[in-house]
């Protein structure tokens, strides 16, 4: 599902004397359907950069970043848009939404984008929000005013409402209490059973050990370490 070949990434900071920062070089990895892989490595080793490249958010300098057969490095914008709508889900640590849109609609949106009827989409959103213990009184409010843990769960709901065959999870259990953490781990386990290929960053080691089949240390992709 995910297939990286000889991927490298540098940043050129034009406004800081054209400084070139090499982040990754010759990264290779493969993740199969139904597999959950954790990215590990110290802060700054490039985990988040790699995640963003897997989502097509950062563009690689060279190599192939293939998701469900689409090379994100070469794909036209509309191919990536379609991939993200239908195949590739992403639960980030940050919630970015249009202000004043009710939480229920924020969660339902990925389904609406796929053409699911509004009522149906909202029903599914409600079910998921309830499972994640977001009080019903909050559903009609915008999540921009929510606490960090609540926003996190709204993000997770958005990521799991559509059964994406490929899923990226950036710290899905951070800032969650034990109950909700378990709900999220259940969701991940369910997704794996469905055959979803998952790549995640988990600082929560217990969670990582519980759901992940493999770990990949990103430090190995650092420039200079490649060998």
């Amino acid at each position: 599902m995910f297939d990286l070949k000889d991927v490298s990434k540098t940043f050129t900071l034009h406004n800081q004397g054209a400084a070139v920062i090499e982040v990754l070089s010759e990264a290779n990895m493969t993740v199969a359907p139904g597999e959950c892989v954790a990215l590990t490595g110290a802060s700054g080793s490039g985990k988040s950069t790699l995640m963003r490249m897997l989502y097509g958010n950062y563009r690689a300098q060279s190599g192939v970043v293939s998701v469900a057969g689409v090379d994100l490095v070469q794909a036209a914008p509309r191919e990536i848009i379609r991939l993200r709508r239908e195949v590739l889900g992403y639960v980030s640590q940050f919630l970015r939404v249009v202000p004043r849109v009710p939480t229920l609609d924020v969660v339902a949106e990925p389904l609406l984008a796929l053409g699911v009827p509004a009522e149906d989409a909202r029903d599914q959103a409600a079910t998921l929000l309830a499972r994640l213990n977001i009080p019903k009184t909050l559903w009609d409010l915008s999540p921009t005013t929510f606490s960090g843990g609540e926003q996190q769960r709204v993000n997770i709901a958005r990521g799991f409402i559509h059964p994406f065959p490929a899923l990226l999870l950036d710290e899905p259990t951070a800032s969650l209490d034990a109950t909700n953490r378990n709900v999220v781990l259940e969701l991940i386990a369910d997704a794996k059973v469905r055959g979803t290929a998952i790549i995640g960053i988990f600082h929560d080691e217990a969670a990582r050990d519980q759901v992940c089949d493999r770990q990949i240390d990103v430090t190995g992709f650092s420039p200079g370490c490649a060998a």
Partner: peptide, 30 residues
């Protein structure tokens, strides 16, 4: 919030184009 894709213009020229989040999160042009 609205656009899937983005074109950045300067002095009449398109200096950068791509997915909105690519251009905003990983800008290439100075």
């Amino acid at each position: 919030l609205l656009a899937d894709r983005l074109m950045v213009m300067k002095s009449g020229h398109v200096v950068e184009a791509g997915l909105t989040d690519q251009v905003l999160d990983d800008p290439k042009h100075a």
